[in-house]
Lab assay of single mutants.
Amino acid sequence: QGEKVEGLQAQALYPWRAKKDNHLNFNKNDVITVLEQQDMWWFGEVQGQKGWFPKSYVKLISG
């Protein structure tokens, strides 16, 4: 089970394309609201879409 977080935002360092239905698509420089953190994967929201993404593709910009 991941840790729920509030008020964290991350900026995409690279584009990410979903490999599964529960993954989040985003483009480089998109700002993602992080909702949950697990070891290597984070759950977040961007442009009304929610899903999992690899944390190595983003950098935290707040929180």
Rank of each mutant, 00 (worst) to 15 (best):
Q1W: 04
Q37E: 08
W42D: 03
F26N: 00
Q1G: 11
N25P: 03
K4T: 14
A12Q: 00
R17D: 08
G51R: 00
R17K: 04
L35K: 15
Q1F: 05
Y14C: 03
E36G: 11
G44S: 00
V5Y: 12
V34K: 01
A18W: 04
I61K: 11
D21I: 09
E6H: 03
H23F: 10
L24V: 08
V46K: 12
V46H: 14
F43A: 02
L8P: 04
G7L: 02
Q9W: 10
I61R: 09
I32H: 02
E36C: 13
F53T: 00
F26P: 00
Q49N: 04
F53G: 02
K19F: 14
E45H: 15
K50Y: 03
G44V: 00
K50H: 06
F26R: 00
G2R: 04
A12L: 00
G48W: 00
P15C: 12
I32V: 12
W41Q: 05
V46T: 09
I61G: 07
R17C: 05
A12P: 00
R17S: 12
G51D: 01
Y14P: 02
K28I: 02
M40N: 15
P15A: 14
Q11F: 13
M40F: 07
D21F: 09
D39R: 08
K4R: 09
W16I: 15
L13A: 06
S56R: 10
I32K: 00
P15E: 15
Q47W: 09
E45D: 07
K50L: 04
K20L: 08
P15V: 08
V46N: 05
K55G: 08
G7A: 15
R17E: 12
A18I: 07
L24R: 02
G48F: 03
G63K: 04
D30A: 08
L24P: 04
S56Q: 10
G2Q: 06
E3N: 14
W16H: 12
R17H: 10
D39T: 13
K55M: 03
S56N: 05
A12V: 02
V58I: 03
Y14K: 10
K28Q: 07
Q1L: 08
Q37K: 15
E36K: 14
P15M: 15
Q9L: 09
Y14E: 14
W16Q: 04
D39V: 05
W42K: 00
W42I: 02
E36L: 11
G44R: 00
F43H: 15
V58E: 02
K20E: 12
E45V: 13
E45N: 04
D39W: 02
Q9E: 14
F26Q: 00
K50M: 08
N22K: 14
W41A: 03
D30N: 04
N22Q: 14
